[in-house]
């Protein structure tokens, strides 16, 4: 996750105090792993140094968080470029899954039983995500959908691998 650019994007929506920015970030993009406030301020500090945001004057009132951050032209240009750039198409094979299958075959263990359990674990996770999708707000649905497609990719791999176990075993045990 690109935290600086995401924060910049949120600032393009509206200028904001550091704490509100953190709250929006956590709500939309990282509900299970909140940002540390310290990380937010150090990131904003760097963005200010690079001329991508400017810091407003301290506002009257109590509390440590009385400064507003405003995005600059340069910051906005960077957000725009970033949003149109495709993300690198990564390899997402869960390598541990792959390793377990190959090792099990090498050691003459029951790789098929392992794959059955792995499938059950994946479907169980998909069931939990399905529940989230039925009840949660749209943003949660989008995240859940993404996770589900990833899990589906693994599941297809599990199915095909299971169908090929015989041939794989021969090759690995040669």
């Amino acid at each position: 996750m690109n935290v600086p650019l995401t924060l910049l994007g949120l600032l393009e929506r509206q200028s904001s105090h550091g704490y509100d920015l953190k709250r929006d970030y956590d709500t939309y993009f990282s509900p299970t792993k909140p940002l540390l406030l310290g990380q937010v301020y150090s990131t904003l500090g760097r963005l200010a140094r690079d001329g991508k945001v400017v810091v407003g004057p301290a506002e009257p009132g109590a509390g440590p968080d009385r400064k507003r951050y405003v995005i600059t032209e340069r910051g906005a240009t960077e957000v725009e470029a970033w949003l149109t750039e495709p993300v690198e198409a990564e390899q997402h094979l869960q390598t541990e899954l792959f390793t377990k299958v190959v090792l099990a075959l090498m050691l003459g263990r029951d790789a098929s039983a392992y794959l059955d359990l792995q499938r059950a674990a994946h479907v169980a996770r998909m069931r939990a995500l399905t529940e989230i999708k039925r009840q949660g707000p749209l943003v949660d649905k989008l995240l859940a959908d993404h996770s589900m497609f990833r899990l589906e990719a693994d599941l297809r791999w599990i199915d095909v691998t299971q169908a090929r176990l015989g041939a794989l075993a021969e090759e690995v045990c040669k």
Binding site: V123, R127, E152
Partner: peptide, 8 residues
Amino acid sequence: DARVAACA
């Protein structure tokens, strides 16, 4: 389809 199975 695991997606369908996940509804059960």
